[in-house]
Simulated scan of single mutants.
Amino acid sequence: MYVVLLTYTAPLVEVDYHLPDHAKWLEKHFASGEFLTAGRRNPRTGGVIITRPMDRAKLDAVLASDPFALHHLATYEVIEFSATRTAPELRLLNEAIAHTS
């Protein structure tokens, strides 16, 4: 699994202009099952995405296709981790991850 930290590198007015395309990009990757959760950072300096396990090269390609990346509006810090414990509400998720690792 990965935690991806996006940090905006452009003014929010530029980020907001591309936000609808970014939202479509997110939806595509939720529909494919690659993304588990995503949202804004508080304060609004960027975002966070948590992904399912995948090849790092694939993740890099996915991130490179983000409109925020294409328009040089954000940088991406990628943190890989292996989930070994989850809250009871996420147990099914953890079991699904264990089968894909």
Rank of each mutant, 00 (worst) to 15 (best):
V78D: 05
H22I: 09
K58A: 09
A74G: 00
P11H: 11
R56Q: 09
E27D: 15
P88W: 15
I49E: 03
V15H: 04
A87I: 01
S101M: 03
S82K: 11
V3R: 07
E27V: 04
V13L: 07
R52Q: 14
A38C: 11
H99R: 15
H29L: 01
L19T: 05
P53H: 11
H71T: 01
P53F: 08
A10Y: 09
G46H: 06
K28S: 07
L5A: 09
I97T: 12
K24I: 09
R52A: 13
T75L: 05
Y8P: 03
P11A: 12
D21S: 15
E34H: 11
T45S: 14
L12G: 03
L90A: 15
D55M: 02
A31R: 10
A98R: 14
L19N: 03
L5F: 10
R56K: 14
R85K: 12
I50M: 10
P20Y: 10
E77F: 05
A83R: 09
A69C: 06
N42F: 14
G47Q: 08
T9V: 10
L36F: 02
Y8E: 08
Y8N: 12
T86W: 03
R52K: 13
L63I: 04
A64K: 12
T7H: 15
E80C: 00
L63H: 05
A83I: 11
T9M: 11
L5N: 09
A74H: 02
I50L: 09
G47E: 05
V78A: 11
P20F: 08
E77W: 02
A31M: 04
A64E: 11
H71I: 02
T84V: 06
H18P: 00
E80N: 09
T7V: 07
T100Y: 01
K28T: 14
R40W: 10
V78F: 05
A96I: 03
F30E: 06
N94I: 09
H29I: 00
L93N: 00
S101D: 10
T9Q: 15
D60H: 09
K28N: 07
V15D: 05
T51W: 03
A83W: 04
R52I: 01
T100D: 12
F68A: 00
F81I: 04
L92W: 14
A74I: 00
L90E: 10
L6S: 06
T9S: 13
T37L: 15
Y2H: 14
L36A: 06
A98W: 03
V15W: 08
R44T: 05
L73C: 03
L90S: 13
V3D: 00
S82E: 15
E95S: 10
P11G: 07
L93D: 04
P53C: 08
R91Y: 07
N42R: 13
N94M: 13
F81G: 13
I79Q: 11
K58S: 01
D66Q: 09
V48L: 15
E34M: 10
T45N: 08
F30C: 03
T84G: 08
F30T: 02
E14R: 15
R56D: 10
E27L: 13
A23C: 04
V48G: 01
G47S: 07
A96N: 13
E14T: 06
F68C: 00
E80G: 04
E34S: 09
E77D: 15
G47C: 07
R56M: 05
D21L: 14
L92K: 12
E77R: 12
V78Y: 02
F68K: 00
V78P: 04
D16K: 14
